[in-house]
């Protein structure tokens, strides 16, 4: 068997997605609070607290500027958490994937189902934040529904990347490296808290190669009514390419880990 073959994309991933949805529906109360409680605190504390010192950023009240970034980072964190801790539990602790592999489902189907689920979780976490942001007057435009597909793409991208790490993990402890070395730096250099225009060129250009900055660049105008970048679709291609690469890599690593 060729572990390196690009994974098959099939509707068989849907039962995997539906299984996770079914679990989430049973446990949704605490999960929801966990998902949007923290980003909400950031939005309120920094938006008002810091915002009162800062005033306007890029022509926007700070809380309005921040809200779009928080939506994106919340999507990123939710998907990462799902692809790391929750997926690892299903793989190594509950052996859920082992059970699936005894049925007509393959590793490709499981990985794709998990990635789509991570995207769905990101949507679930973004919607309440959007609602709160709207209530605070931080959403200025009818295009705001356009945020949802972008949030889904962020979730898919970071869910897939997290599954690569899960495929390599020996225990939960491993994930702290990923958060410290990948997620937190991305959080800080992707235009969430401050525009990248003030950063040194190296950081600014480097951030353009990473998946989160582009998503923020698209979500911010959608939420605030500023004009969209002219290359919007090209911008979204970056997280999609990351997602495709990570899908392939996670599948390859998991084939090696689970069926050798």
């Amino acid at each position: 068997m060729n572990h390196l073959a690009f994974p098959t994309v099939s509707l068989r991933c849907l039962p995997v997605w539906r299984r996770n949805l079914r679990v989430w529906r049973k446990l949704s109360g605490p999960a929801l609070i966990g998902n949007f409680g923290e980003p909400l605190l950031y939005l309120l504390a920094l938006g008002y607290g810091l915002g009162s010192f800062i005033g306007n950023v890029s022509g926007l009240p700070y809380i309005v500027f921040l809200a779009s970034g928080i939506v994106c980072t919340s999507a990123m964190n939710t998907a990462s958490f799902e692809g790391l801790y929750s997926a690892y539990t299903r793989m190594a602790i509950q052996n859920t994937w082992g059970g699936m592999l005894a049925t007509p489902l393959s590793i490709d189907d499981i990985v794709l189902g998990e990635i789509l689920w991570a995207g769905t979780k990101s949507l679930i976490s973004a919607v309440p934040i959007l609602l709160v942001a709207a209530a605070l007057g931080a959403v200025h435009d009818g295009y705001v529904l356009g945020v949802l597909p972008v949030v889904f793409i962020i979730g898919v991208c970071f869910g897939a990347m997290a599954l690569v790490v899960t495929a390599l993990a020996k225990s939960y402890d491993f994930f702290i490296y990923y958060f410290t070395l990948v997620i937190t730096p991305l959080f800080l250099v992707s235009g969430v808290f401050f525009p990248l225009s003030g950063m040194p060129d190296a950081v600014r250009i480097g951030a353009q190669l990473l998946p989160l900055a582009h998503a923020v660049d698209v979500v911010r105008p959608l939420m605030t009514g500023q004009p969209l970048p002219s290359l919007t679709l090209l911008y979204l291609l970056v997280p999609l390419l990351y997602a495709a690469g990570a899908f392939w890599l996670a599948t390859t690593l998991l084939r090696r880990r689970l069926i050798s």
């Binding site: 039962p15 539906r18 299984r19 079914r22 679990v23 049973k26 446990l27 509950q94 052996n95 859920t96 082992g98 059970g99 699936m100 049925t103 007509p104 489902l105």
Partner: peptide
């Protein structure tokens, strides 16, 4: 490797969906 979050019935329904 039963699903600990599910009831007996939900375990069977979910597993059936894989087929």
């Amino acid at each position: 490797n039963l699903d600990p979050d599910f009831t007996v019935m939900e375990n069977l329904v979910t597993y059936a969906s894989y087929f």
